[in-house]
Design a protein around this nucleic acid. Sequence first.
DNA 1: ATAACTACCGAAAACGTTTTCGTGTTGACA
DNA 2: TGTCAACACGAAAACGTTTTCGGTAGTTAT
Lengths: 339, 339
Amino acid sequence: MRQKITIKTIAKELGVSTSTVSKALRDSHEISVETKDKIKAYADYYNYKPNNLALQLRNQKTKVIGVILPKIVHHFFSTVIKGIESGANDKGYHIMVCFSNESYESEVNNLKVLSNGSVDGLIVSISNETLENSHFEHFQGLVNEEIPLVLFDRVHDSIFCDKVIVDDIGAGYKATKHLAENGRKKIAMLSTPEHVNIGTLRKQGYLKALKEFDLMSNENLVLEIDEKEDAKTQIAKVFDNEIDAIFAVNEIYAAIAIRLAKEQNLRVPEDVSVIGFTDGLISEYSSPSITAIVQHGLTMGRQAVELLIERIENENESLPPRTKVISSNLHVRESTKSK
Amino acid sequence: MRQKITIKTIAKELGVSTSTVSKALRDSHEISVETKDKIKAYADYYNYKPNNLALQLRNQKTKVIGVILPKIVHHFFSTVIKGIESGANDKGYHIMVCFSNESYESEVNNLKVLSNGSVDGLIVSISNETLENSHFEHFQGLVNEEIPLVLFDRVHDSIFCDKVIVDDIGAGYKATKHLAENGRKKIAMLSTPEHVNIGTLRKQGYLKALKEFDLMSNENLVLEIDEKEDAKTQIAKVFDNEIDAIFAVNEIYAAIAIRLAKEQNLRVPEDVSVIGFTDGLISEYSSPSITAIVQHGLTMGRQAVELLIERIENENESLPPRTKVISSNLHVRESTKSK
DNA sequence: ATAACTACCGAAAACGTTTTCGTGTTGACA
DNA sequence: TGTCAACACGAAAACGTTTTCGGTAGTTAT
């Protein structure tokens, strides 16, 4: 990068002090019109841009928000990040993005490097590995340093900070209820291992609906799909029971289930109705298109950033931690149908 | 944020100078072992972390790479960003991400705020609006300031910088060739408006293959789908001709085409074979699964960041602009079949 | 004529580091 | 006893800003 033009160089070239230049550029009344004009013209001509680093150091704030996500090639998370960026942009903030790739170590690392002054606050969704092992000390560190922090989607109670979550119980309930109202009697669920709390919560809603409609709640009907193994062979087992509906914890499992159903000569939605979670491209474009819970990632992102900035800009008064629950709703498509 | 601990406070507390503290923490031989131990112990106890802003200002580099993308909720771009982040991370860099949302104004804006010292270099994929109107002065500005810049995927010849692109011509050729080799005679293409160069390039490959196989290259067979209008009604027109294959410029158009084919009681792949671009989730999970050109977004991201960092860290020697072409290949699935 | 203002500008500190260049105190050696 | 090196540390500049506090000239009011 070639020699950048600074206030100092302008001052030297024009034979004035740096304070004069600074004031002139900020249109201070302390500077005469002629001097201002001269300085502005010079700055304009040489395309002067104030150095952000210097400003950040001086103002002790960066106007940057750190974001740590478990992954990015994923409809929900990329939607959230879009919401965060747009919300941040509206308030003059930028975002710095890191991915933990579901790894605890990576998460700790990212947290450390981002909390050394380069960001004014953080928005994080916890990695699976961290949730699995229940290690949250690194977050505690942040809280102690009083660095504003907002957790979303993958959160944990033990961390004392603002949170934005989806109503997972309600969503599981709505999905299952929809299937029950369509006359489905034997509804299976494709869930996640227990430590991933989203799976457990959605299952709670699922069970609640089953109870309400007096439907069988056989433990065999709930499959905990392990991400590390092959999904297809695990999901295939769901057809061992004679089911007439499936509630899947994400849209990929839903798509796989539909495909397996076809292979078994079952018609979707007539013989088996299927509901997915995450209203992404798969749900929209597969055939049949898939009825899905929409998670409103965009609103989640915007909410998270709003909470965060509010906290950043009122750091003196210490508000108590808040939790925003974003309610989800059902997007009914072709993969569900009443009997 | 509460009173952070700095070198100054350590110095004052321990009755030494800031230089001593700095040297001690960096384990300089100039400082006696006892003093070093004392200082380190103190720093450790109070969890001292050097302030990044100060370091950045002093070193005149941020170790941050700015990334500007047209959009993020998109398989290809989110894959690229993953590649960029991982490549950057390997070399100790972080990324700051902005989205132009395909808007020229937004792109100019992002470019301006990022080029004021907050990043060491930029990776950009040009927005559609910018390409449409051929306004590239804002990039010229960057080049003049000698801020390292790498363009990827959506590039333009008039900008003098490093580039990473996919072999769009070759990809279009490979896709069409595959269809032709399967005995398809009347191959349609779902393209983009002309200003989006990716569409035009892929079309060149398409035409080349048609010629090679002595197939009809009727202009009616090429549909330029306008993103601003409804895609489905536009794509429906492709069936006005009696075609037996479709090459779509992205996976969404491919998925829509498949669905429309089914509605017309055409079997895929028997009656109509379909190939898409972008090997994303839709291609993988729709049924039939879609044969697609895989773009290797991950490698593109890694290549881009590699070029950029090389340039950042050798800013003295001025290398000529380089262009890396990432060749794509075909992932054959169920949506294509020989006659 | 003196006091009080106004208009205009500069010096210096501050943000938190690192690094160069001194400088004072040892101890060893001739 | 004088010289010199080694050792341990500090002062100050530098990165690029902004802002507070003075200060000087000239003008106006008393």
